[in-house]
Nucleic acid binder design. Structure first.
Lengths: 342, 342
DNA sequence: ACTGATATTGACAGCGCTACCAACCGGTTG
DNA sequence: CAACCGGTTGGTAGCGCTGTCAATATCAGT
């Protein structure tokens, strides 16, 4: 006959209950909902747990209760500073709560995203935070069928799976160009790398603003699927100058490209902003301390992560946020690199 | 009497086994060690699982087997590019394996680290990757008593808890100074931020090299506990100039500080390297594309993460790595910002 | 044919916790 | 005095899987 897999020294809930002189179920309740116990038992269980150094077994809890305290987070990149900030917000919001994070990297692939989504389901997550609004049809079905709060972050769209927090990349791109137009620049180039859906929408914003101003010219646009970097910013800027030597300004879809372009200007002894205006995107910390300082579109990445996590938390606590779609906006931070022409 | 918590439509291992015409335990084995089954049963279970869309319940598996397939990772910062690279290496190494990552942020606090370590234990992780060698005594006890592979990353020390991969920050700091001395610089300043144990050891390296050369001067050192940033680099550099106006070169403990110092030089119309040499640390991508390009100490962060994860994986597979302490080294990448004086 | 060794399969119980329901308690209420 | 109430506590079974061991099948060697 089968053996007893007895583990002699181990402290389980039963041991705590025994020491406290209550039933296991009462001890269990202490850890999940202390208010349900009378003051006396509460104290007894508490001290018993402390004395024994009890650590709850999460697997047993998950199995018995059919749910976990894990919030799945799907982001496209670990390298990108933008997501580092978002993540920091998420981690900060969850700090001290009983929820923990399961992070997965989609590498900008929606197929990979779908695969990871399925993987997450095996764990019955308490909540889900996913990046963007461009999921595969299957991913959408999966998310719609899962019974847990889901927040889509980074951008906005008309059909949230559940909740959503972000800003309009189209409007942000448009606003960057509006600023340059406002400063008197006319021949405004566009530099884009990686070209994920959000960058694409910034390009749409650029296109719209330039077309409205009657200034659109296909030759002003240089993009690549290659991941972004400062070095790439310099290279793309060089390409742009070759295609359109008469450009007066350049809008870069992120700050790395912008700083790369700035250095490329230096290399060519072009003075910024006199001979070339530069606008970046995200407003990373270094934009304020370069020489000259660089104009950028500030996005609220930390807040986005933080709020997304809080929305999940609130929903789990039964207090569903009033607004299921939150627009965090953006702002064009005007600096030396794009001051008025002439 | 108590109810049956029957879940009608759900597919469990039992359902798969039934459809495949085998016992549940055989089906179970298929998912853990397919080679143990005969070819015929293997195919039958496989198709049955696919047909039913079976997804294993990880909580049940963890409870029954008393272990999980989670590797805990403790890092001090989510913002720091250095750890983003390390993480990418870890995630890449684990990609495709059955292990997943549980990430936690110690925020450079060893007390927080200890707390998180205890938290991890509740999950019975399959492995652990922790940053650095400065843990609390309790943390060390905990790690020593846990029965799973542990890798300490980022630096080297004489008493690994289990395995270790990193490089000598002392030697790296010393090498950076040796390079500057070699180029003819004598009054070499030191800029440090955050001052975590690894940065401290780079400072020790600096101190040692300068003392050996008979050039040590306390006034050449400027440090702060504030987290690093480019803006801070400029500020610290300004402080250093105020304390020691005659400095010829500056060693920055990371690249952000170095770039900030470079911009501060620009602001003051000091020519780099003619009037001021700059050396950074980590060799982030942008160091090669700034103007002038910046000398830095290259560290193999991605490889560190990747190898650390692989060491855990190998140990779990029963193939313990021959070397339990791996020195990944570093190299001084000489660029324009520190070319020969005069 | 028999032995021993190896490969393959199955029975059973139990991992540690919680859902569900029942029971109990002192105090009201009709 | 029975019925009722909200607050608190406990009994029982079961969440879905795997460790352990036993049983059976297969095969080579003698």
């Amino acid at each position: 006959m089968a053996r007893k897999r007895i583990t002699p020294g181990k402290i389980r809930l039963t041991e705590v209950a025994k020491l406290a002189g209550v039933s296991p179920i009462t001890a269990s309740r202490f850890f999940r909902n202390p208010e349900a116990l009378s003051i006396g038992k509460r104290a007894r269980v508490e001290s018993a747990a402390k004395e024994l150094g009890y650590v709850p077994n999460l697997a047993a809890r998950a199995l018995a209760s059919q749910r976990t305290e894990v919030i799945g987070v799907l982001i496209p990149s670990l390298t990108n500073n933008v997501f580092a900030d978002v993540l920091r917000g998420i981690y900060d919001a969850l700090d001290g709560s009983r929820y923990s994070i399961q992070l997965a990297n989609t590498r900008y692939s929606i197929l990979q995203e779908e695969r990871l989504l399925r993987l997450f389901l095996a764990q019955k997550p308490a909540g889900l935070i996913v990046t963007g609004i461009n999921q595969t049809a299957d991913s959408r079905h999966i998310m719609e069928s899962v019974d847990c709060p889901i927040v889509q972050i980074m951008e906005l769209g008309s059909a949230p799976v559940d909740m959503m927090i972000g800003f309009s990349h189209f409007d942000a791109g448009k606003a960057a160009i509006a600023h340059l137009l406002d400063q008197g620049y006319r021949r405004i180039g566009f530099l884009g790398a990686r070209m994920d859906p959000r960058v694409q929408r910034r390009l749409d914003g650029y296109r719209s603003a330039m077309t409205d101003a009657g200034l659109f010219d296909e030759r002003l646009i240089v993009t690549t699927a290659v991941p972004t970097s400062m070095t790439l910013g310099g290279a793309l800027f060089a390409d742009l100058l070759a295609k359109a030597p008469d450009i007066e300004a350049v809008f870069c879809v992120n700050d790395d490209l912008a700083l790369g372009a700035l250095f490329e200007c230096k290399r060519r002894h072009m003075v910024v902003p006199d001979q070339m205006a530069i606008v970046g995107f995200n407003d990373l910390e270094f934009m304020a301390s370069s020489v000259p300082t660089l104009t950028s579109v500030r996005t609220n990445r930390y807040e986005m992560g933080r709020n997304a996590a809080m929305m999940v938390l609130e929903t789990l606590a039964g207090r569903r946020p009033a607004e299921s779609v939150v627009d965090l906006g953006f702002s064009v931070i005007e600096r030396q690199s794009s001051t008025r022409r002439g």
